[in-house]
């Protein structure tokens, strides 16, 4: 990856998907999870992906995030064409460009909150001192300043999800992907978390894409995309 490819240019879209197909083979029967999805996301957008269960929201997020491959079309993230990357290059791309927040909190249970956040910086090769400072800054930003030494098991669901967000943003990725991040949270905690995501989006210009069923989540986003049967069905950005 060259320096220019990593540049977070405002001119270029963060995500550019064209005619993306993803076909799973289930007991020799092909399942079309994506059947030609087109989606372009520009820097600074906060996008929600809605749609019925099985419409392909998670699949699209996984393809964009380089977690899953695709069978046709093209996917460019942060200027990098994912089509030509092998597994190791995809891992590197995820590490450098994408932050993930999963539905289940998915922290490393044996590490403290701070260590969880530092972990990814360590993978990036950040020096010790800087790592510590950046982890603390990220934790503070998400209101977790005092909880850095706790392990995930000693934190509430909402707190754990905030640690996950801190971990996702600490590397300053070009894109934050969140697949139903609030599905396991009550409505009050959900709103708190969404408020934090919106702050990140508005204050830092973080580009965020989140899959959700929840109208509350959609109400916080700047752009609402709806999927149906593996395609983009409606998009508030292109609506009149």
């Amino acid at each position: 990856m060259t320096e220019s490819e990593q540049t977070k240019s405002t001119a270029k879209p963060v995500v550019a998907c064209q005619g993306v197909q993803r076909i799973y083979q289930q007991d020799t029967v092909p399942v079309y999870a994506l059947r030609g999805a087109d989606l372009t996301i520009n820097p600074g957008e906060f996008v929600s992906l809605a749609g019925p269960s099985g419409s392909g929201k998670s699949t699209l997020l996984n393809v964009i995030g380089g977690l899953d491959g695709f069978d046709a079309g093209s996917v460019v993230v942060g200027g990098v064409d994912l089509g030509g990357l092998n597994a190791a290059e995809l891992a590197e791309m995820r590490l450098r460009n994408v932050g993930f927040v999963f539905q289940a909190y998915n922290l490393i249970p044996v590490l403290t909150a701070r260590e969880n956040v530092e972990f990814i910086l360590q993978l990036q090769g950040t020096p010790n001192q800087e790592r510590r400072e950046r982890a603390d800054t990220a934790l503070q930003r998400l209101g977790l300043g005092d909880l850095g030494d706790r392990r995930p098991g000693e934190l509430s669901g909402g707190q754990q999800q905030r640690v996950a967000i801190a971990r996702a943003i600490v590397t300053e990725p070009v894109l934050l992907l969140a697949d139903e991040p609030t599905a396991n949270l009550d409505s009050k905690t959900t709103e708190e978390l969404l408020g934090l995501l919106r702050d990140l989006n508005q204050q830092q210009g973080m580009t965020i894409v989140t899959a959700t069923h929840d109208p509350i989540v959609m109400s916080y986003t700047s752009r609402q995309v709806a999927m149906l049967d593996g395609e983009i069905h409606q998009d508030s950005a292109s609506a009149v």
């Binding site: 597994a87 891992a91 450098r96 994408v98 999963f102 972990f119 971990r167």
Partner: peptide, 14 residues
């Protein structure tokens, strides 16, 4: 499995 999958998802290489 899930935890190790998560580490891979975060970009930890094999």
């Amino acid at each position: 499995t899930r935890e190790l999958g998560m580490l891979r998802a975060l970009g930890m290489n094999q």
